[in-house]
Simulated assay, not measured.
Amino acid sequence: MNTDDLNFAYKVRHALNEQLDELPASTTDRLAAARKAAMARKKADAPVRVSERALATGGGAGFFAQPLSWLGRMGVAVPMLVLVAGMVGLYQYEEQERVAELAEVDAAVLSDELPLSAYMDHGFNAYLTKSEQ
């Protein structure tokens, strides 16, 4: 039964309860017969399963009301935290590698006997490229 059906049923019940004293006896008899017929056709309720843990905790709706619900939440949260920590670690590692590489290049340039202006010369860059091949 959806919410519209429930709302309609509540409105009809409220309207009938308000006007109950003014209804003729034949109408109340027909309504009583209709109610009995509806109750006879009503499906039997499914048996309710109650766990021992729910009985022990009084059936309260706390964090541990559903035994594995917190485990399910942690099953999602923990891998996400591991992923974020791994990505941060990888970023830090790559940044350290980049800094070490730049330091190595700076040390090679400073320890070389060539003047710094030689590295700015385009002909020198062409010479280095050609000599590497």
Rank of each mutant, 00 (worst) to 15 (best):
S51G: 11
N125D: 14
K36G: 11
A40Y: 02
F8S: 13
A103L: 02
V109Q: 08
A118S: 04
W70Y: 01
T3D: 14
Q96I: 12
P67E: 12
A37M: 09
L55V: 15
M74E: 06
M87H: 05
V99Q: 08
A100K: 14
K43D: 15
M39D: 15
A9S: 13
V88E: 06
A61G: 05
A100G: 06
D21C: 03
G60D: 02
T57M: 15
G86N: 00
D4Y: 15
E101S: 04
A56Q: 10
M80F: 13
R49T: 12
D106N: 13
T57E: 15
A77I: 10
L55P: 12
L68G: 14
L128K: 04
L81V: 11
G72C: 00
P79E: 05
A61T: 07
Q133K: 11
M74D: 04
E94K: 08
D106F: 03
L20V: 10
Y119W: 10
G72A: 04
L71T: 15
A15Q: 12
M39C: 06
M39G: 09
F8L: 14
A9C: 11
T129E: 08
V78K: 00
A126C: 03
E95D: 08
V48R: 07
A65G: 10
L110P: 01
G59M: 10
L90T: 10
S117T: 15
R49A: 11
G89M: 01
K43T: 14
R30W: 12
A38L: 15
T27I: 08
P79Q: 01
D112K: 01
R73F: 12
A33E: 11
N2E: 13
A40F: 03
R35F: 02
S117D: 15
P24D: 08
P79Y: 01
K130W: 05
H14R: 12
Y119S: 01
S26L: 04
Q92N: 04
E95Q: 14
P67H: 11
M120F: 06
L16I: 03
Q66K: 15
P67R: 09
A56D: 12
V76F: 01
M120P: 02
E18I: 06
Y10S: 03
V88T: 10
L128G: 06
E104P: 00
D112N: 12
R35D: 05
R30G: 05
G89Q: 00
G72D: 03
Q19H: 14
V78C: 00
G75H: 05
R30C: 04
Q19R: 13
M1T: 10
A32K: 07
R13G: 05
T28M: 15
W70F: 09
H14S: 11
F8W: 13
S51P: 12
K43F: 13
A77N: 07
P79T: 01
K36L: 13
S111K: 09
T27N: 05
Y127M: 12
P47V: 10
R98L: 08
L102E: 14
Y10I: 05
L90R: 04
S26N: 04
E104H: 09
G58R: 12
E18R: 06
E94C: 07
